[in-house]
Design a protein around this nucleic acid. Structure first.
Lengths: 225, 225
DNA sequence: GATTAAACCGACTCACCTGCCGGTTTTATG
DNA sequence: CATAAAACCGGCAGGTGAGTCGGTTTAATC
């Protein structure tokens, strides 16, 4: 929770945050509306994680959330608007969790190897429900053009924000911008793939072995810079 | 097309092949039935690649294939039976393509580094429509229990077959069985993840750079054995 | 306290997909 | 040629989900 890291976190999160105006709930009764919206979106994420993109139906969300379909329609006139809110919510919260994890870690033990810490924090952030939802959306967006129209811009925005800010988040890689970028692409790809293969990899140590190897490999990239 | 490699390929493919009896089309008119089945399954794969698991509907397949829904029902009474045939078809044909690619490659240039050849052949096999369909099924199976009941056993069977045969396919790794297994898990995970991230990675050289890095890393695993 | 606006409710229509089934054509068999 | 079996056809019923709409309750404003 140092001041310097906070500014970076704030900048990244601000760039990824939904249109949610930073202004506090000006009117004390419209605040309930925002709460309801948040509750619905959270329920939608649950439905998405549990039933996939196909399970993200307005009826399922309404039932599970305990609101009527009419109320749902009031806050999210169409299903795609709900999906858009889910996309924003998920990308924001996963990033938030990752930043808190990583910067919390380097604050506690400043002498440890930061690269492996970052890699392990990333692996943890990828195992969250938020990222499961993100993967589900990414997969569905490959064949659903309507979803892709919502998802792809956010995915690209996430990528550009990360690319432009990571040089400050990981100053050790100074003057090796392309190598850091490669390391990030590498880590993202492996971790996503590991989630996909999780059912067949099983719960033996295969996942752990692989994750250790990934962390070691990224460390080697850093050492050989 | 050497005799020795053929036996390995045959053994692997036999273990993965659908129940399709090796016996030739005994009756000259039931053969048309098999042809029709194959045509329907192939069309189903196309639908799957194009519209995702949600787009794999009996109506869409029938229309696209040019057959009536009644004929579809005759060959595949239920949608899940069609899905099962698709799963078998896809895992078999991707493996077939990979083996042909790899063993064709090592037959042509026997002095080249086999590890990078294998890694690149794997990357090519992963970019096929068959693997796109496989990924779509793997993703959907995470939340669709009915599909998982069909998909997971095949996925595990593929994994065990590969694990038990690869030591012969890659004899250079003799006495480093666990390392080879790790290399395979690693390669599978990265390549799957790369496909998922393809839309955001774009067509700049990011994918190529990453693939080169992966091949180099696997080569290092081999060198450090 | 009356009026206006927002939040909320449930039923209806429309479209789509699955499974079913009676009927028709084609092929195999005695 | 007769008969049976297979391949094939298209329409029907049941269920589900998205979007729409008139009506009701609750809060805000004068």
């Amino acid at each position: 929770m140092t001041t310097k890291t906070n500014t970076l976190q704030d900048r990244v999160l601000a760039a990824l945050s939904p249109d949610r105006d930073v202004a506090a709930p000006t009117k004390w009764q419209q605040r309930k509306s925002a709460q309801m919206r948040e509750r619905i979106v959270q329920t939608a994420v649950d439905c998405l994680v549990e039933g996939g993109y196909a399970g993200l139906t307005t009826a399922a969300v309404a039932t599970r959330c305990g609101v009527s379909r009419g109320a749902m329609h009031h806050h999210f006139p169409t299903r795609l608007e709900l999906v858009g809110a889910v996309v924003d919510h998920v990308v924001y919260h996963r990033m938030r969790g990752y930043l808190a994890d990583y910067f919390g870690g380097i604050a506690r033990r400043k002498d440890e190897p930061l690269i492996e810490l970052a890699c392990e924090a990333h692996w943890r952030s990828v195992q969250t429900p938020d990222y499961a939802a993100w993967l589900e959306l990414a997969s569905a967006a490959r064949t659903d053009t309507e979803l892709a129209a919502i998802f792809d811009p956010v995915a690209r925005r996430y990528d550009t924000v990360w690319t432009s800010e990571m040089i400050e988040a990981f100053p050790q890689w100074k003057d090796h911008w392309d190598l850091l970028k490669l390391a990030h692409d590498f880590t993202s790809a492996v971790h996503s793939g590991m989630l996909l293969h999780a059912p067949v990899f099983g719960s033996e140590g295969r996942m752990e072995r692989l994750q250790h190897f990934v962390a070691r490999t990224v460390q080697q990239m850093y050492d050989s810079r």
